[in-house]
């Protein structure tokens, strides 16, 4: 009686077809569901109704920021405390904030100067974020230097 040996006539072969099918299905699934999402960040605003007790402004420098818009919602003027105008230049506004705060970060998020943003109703939201960015800090390389933590919005100016 003759026995066939593995080494002589049969080779141990894996059947890869079904595995490759599944692998390709997985690959197609991941490729189709893949989405390149931009990194997102947050600005925190604490705004109790009526203003709330809040904490004292240790710097005694309440800053009122008025943002004027044209009919298209574009920013035309930045006015600080009803007296200083910076056109639509955020750099000048940040320079002012740096000057006022001395470039020092507030000890805690609940302390330091408060900025009230008063904007025209139709001002585009990206300009509002531009204002928030200009007053809350500045980026120095990879570091972010905080300037103002307390931000609130004035009541909305409803169009007439």
């Amino acid at each position: 009686m003759k026995y066939a040996t593995k080494s002589s006539s049969q080779k141990g072969e894996l059947q890869l077809t079904s595995m490759i099918d599944v692998i390709f299905l997985l690959l197609i699934f991941f490729v189709m569901t893949f989405k390149i999402a931009a990194q997102e960040g947050d600005f925190n605003i604490k705004m109790p109704i009526g203003g709330g007790p809040g904490s004292a402004d240790s710097t005694d420098l309440p800053i009122k920021l008025r943002l004027r818009a044209n009919a298209d919602g574009e920013l035309v003027d930045i006015v600080v405390n009803d007296s200083l105008t910076f056109g639509n230049d955020w750099t000048k506004l940040r320079g002012y904030i740096l000057n006022v705060t001395g470039g020092n970060a507030p000890p805690t998020p609940e302390e330091g100067p408060e900025v009230e943003i008063d904007l025209d109703y139709n001002l585009r939201y990206e300009h509002v974020i531009g204002a928030v960015t200009a007053v809350t800090g500045q980026r120095l390389g990879d570091e972010v230097k905080r300037l103002v933590e307390r931000i609130k919005f004035a009541p909305p100016r409803k169009p007439q």
Partner: peptide
């Protein structure tokens, strides 16, 4: 980004 800032204020209110 093109939403009106006033609308965001209304939503917060």
């Amino acid at each position: 980004r093109n939403a009106s800032g006033g609308m965001v204020q209304d939503l917060i209110k």
